[in-house]
Computed example of a mutant assay.
Amino acid sequence: MSKGYRRVILKLSGEALAGEQGAGIAHEMLASVARQVREMRSLGVEVALVVGGGNIWRGIAGSSQGMDRATADYMGMLATVINALALQDALEQYEVQTRVLSAIEMRQIAEPYIRRRAIRHMEKGRVVIFAAGTGNPYFSTDTTAALRAAEIEADVILMAKRVDGVYDSDPLKNPEAKKFDRLTYIDVLNLGLGVMDSTAASLCMDNDIPLIVFNLNLNGNILKAVKGETIGTYIGRD
């Protein structure tokens, strides 16, 4: 495992942004993420963010209630744009230059996603936030993170969650749940561990993109992960 990374994707779940309140956007969580991203930039790390929308709307939940799946997923994509704009505002309050690139064109509030433009922004020291998923229904924001990581040649995906790694069952419900320190992509797929969906896991495996799953709620964890310190669960080829 590399000790420190040059270009990273930080994947934030929408639920993580909700903090303790469980839904909506917790401003103290935005501030915590913004501070840590600013510190990452001060280390010279190029940073891109992918954010989910589950704190506002979950497409799968909508479709399970009888809504058309594509419509529900598009609503979820729009929820990620709301979160992306909130993160952009928080980062700019900490004087971090930020650009939101949306897979669904909405030119009044975000730039369209163009791979070369995203890389150029990062090379200039700007933080890039990828919004609106892949722009297609039936694909999760985990798949977005894997796809964008491959496109921009990121060294690692940092998956910030509400738990401190990957367990064999939900540690919030089962106090006997066992934590894994290291896993392979095949382990994730075969054991159905719920780290990310199979499409995302396969993309990471095919493109040899490692993942680090860790707890966002502990301040300083993002920096520990980006420095290559042992934290959470590492997922890779070996």
Rank of each mutant, 00 (worst) to 15 (best):
D187K: 07
T144K: 02
T184F: 14
G125Q: 09
A150Y: 12
I157G: 06
L147H: 04
K179T: 00
T184E: 14
A177V: 08
D142T: 01
I186R: 15
H121E: 12
N174S: 13
P137E: 10
E153K: 15
I152P: 05
D181Y: 11
G165E: 06
D164T: 04
L183F: 07
K124E: 15
M159C: 07
G165C: 07
N190F: 08
S140K: 09
R182G: 00
I129Y: 01
G135N: 05
E176T: 12
K179A: 11
D142G: 00
I119V: 10
H121R: 13
L172V: 10
V163C: 04
T134I: 05
F139I: 03
E123T: 01
M122T: 02
A150M: 14
D170F: 05
L172N: 15
F130H: 01
L147D: 04
G125C: 06
L193Q: 03
H121F: 15
K161P: 02
F180Y: 15
K178P: 02
V127T: 08
L183Y: 07
K178G: 08
H121M: 14
I186E: 15
I152G: 06
G192I: 05
K161S: 13
I152C: 08
V128S: 03
P137C: 11
L147Q: 07
S169E: 12
R182S: 09
F139R: 05
L183S: 05
D142S: 03
M122V: 03
T184G: 11
D142I: 02
Y167R: 05
K124I: 00
A131I: 03
E123D: 12
I152Q: 07
R148T: 05
K173W: 10
I152V: 13
R126V: 00
T143L: 14
G135C: 07
A149Q: 07
V188M: 05
K179S: 12
